[in-house]
């Protein structure tokens, strides 16, 4: 496997770090609205700084993606699967940028301070408008579910490449170091 078969090393690191953060965010988001226990304010306190960190990393990642050509898909992959892969990746990029922005805009419209940690508050990015809050809050929830389903689809597809097709696709993101995982 030569280096053009793999994503650039910073692209791989960004992918896995963000994978953990985004999955954690979706679980935190679903979990915090499900409870009125002490976990609610604790999870909410994690949700905002991690969300902003995802936004910052997503911007870096977009830059990396635009300056580094990703490895090409296997030549024998059917056209439909290629199209699905492209659409899914576009949707994943859109959501990792949009979800934190919707969250930030939604709290701005609610007139609620976006507290990252005590004493550090982000400025609002939208005018106070309770109806706009209502719409954005719904969008945040629906986009969250869509994001989770896309990630499940992405994971399922990656595992099909790794375990069934056994082509270069999974390795192009998962393999670090020089030795092949399949000896």
């Amino acid at each position: 496997m030569n280096s053009t078969d793999r994503f650039a090393v910073h692209a791989r690191i960004l992918h896995w770090v963000m994978a953990i953060m985004i999955l954690a965010m979706l679980f935190i988001g679903a979990g915090m609205v499900s409870t009125a226990s002490r976990a609610y304010p604790d999870l909410l306190a994690w949700h905002r700084p991690i969300g902003i960190a995802v936004l910052a990393l997503a911007l870096v990642r977009l830059g990396v993606r635009m300056t580094h050509r990703p490895p090409s898909l296997p030549a024998d992959l059917p056209v439909l699967q290629r199209a699905m892969a492209s659409a899914m990746h576009l949707a994943l990029y859109t959501l990792m940028l949009a979800m934190p922005l919707i969250g930030w805009a939604m709290l701005s419209a609610a007139g609620t301070p976006v507290v990252l940690w005590p004493g550090t508050v982000l400025p609002p990015i939208l005018a106070h408008d309770v109806r706009m809050f209502g719409w954005l809050r719904r969008l945040h929830r629906l986009a969250g579910y869509a994001f989770f389903l896309l990630i499940l689809g992405h994971l399922g597809a990656a595992l099909v490449h790794a375990l069934i097709r056994r082509d270069s696709v999974f390795q192009s993101m998962a393999r670090f170091g020089n030795r092949s995982m399949r000896g």
Partner: peptide, 21 residues
């Protein structure tokens, strides 16, 4: 790495479904 698809994908498909599920 040349593709080397498995001959009997069903058990592995079940494993993938179990992970995602």
């Amino acid at each position: 790495m040349p593709p080397d698809p498995v001959a009997h994908p069903l058990p592995r498909l079940a494993l993938i479904a179990a992970i995602v599920g």
